[in-house]
Design a protein around this nucleic acid. Structure first.
Length: 175
DNA sequence: GTCCTGTGAA
DNA sequence: TTCACGGGAC
């Protein structure tokens, strides 16, 4: 649900969705039309169809922990694969969403453009290089990167004065 | 108009 | 590599 969709918009849909489909088995057993009905208004309906397909695959074969394996599931791209691997399994996996891409480019590589397709490889390379040694530390590191992007290093009004990494940031506001 | 915890198809 | 896909907030 969070793919290209703000957290504040997802929360209500998320709770209503889980009330209707409390388990993966419940979701897998539902008709696609029922799943789409609960998605109505959220947009990007391919996500609902993919999630439904995914539930059936995972009920059958289980949920892998490695990003490379997660990638094979419908609707799971590079970002979600990394997010599930690190947040659900505490693996040492990199993740780049729109927030992280913005934070990493601002801090380490101001010449890269976070939205530009041809810069994505370089941004992922930075994300890999910035990863701490252990999976547990990676969990915290990735959470911190995303929170920094969501709360401080935001797209419109960045709050450099409150930023914990302003000392090493290559895009910090001059005071 | 830009942005949001992107992905799959062309 | 580029593009369509939703909808709401700013």
């Amino acid at each position: 649900m969070l793919q290209q969709t703000q957290v504040s918009r997802v929360i209500d849909f998320y709770h209503r969705f889980l009330t209707r489909f409390p388990t993966l088995e419940a979701l897998a057993g539902a008709r696609e039309s029922q799943v789409l009905a609960r998605w109505e208004g959220l947009g990007y309906y391919a996500r609902a169809r993919n999630l439904h397909k995914l539930s059936r695959a995972v009920v059958r074969e289980g949920l892998p922990a490695e990003a490379e394996q997660l990638r094979k599931l419908p609707g799971i791209g590079p970002y979600t694969a990394g997010a599930v691997s690190t947040f659900a399994f505490e693996r040492r996996a990199a993740l780049v969403d729109t927030n992280v891409a913005r934070v990493l480019t601002r801090v380490f590589a101001p010449k890269l453009h976070p939205k530009r397709a041809r810069d994505q490889k370089a941004i992922w390379a930075i994300a890999e290089a910035a990863l701490p040694r252990t999976g547990k530390a990676a969990w915290t590191h990735n959470q911190a990167l995303m929170e920094l992007g969501a709360l401080i290093c935001t797209a419109r009004v960045k709050q450099c004065g409150r930023c914990p990494v302003r000392g090493i940031c290559k895009s910090r506001d001059q005071e």
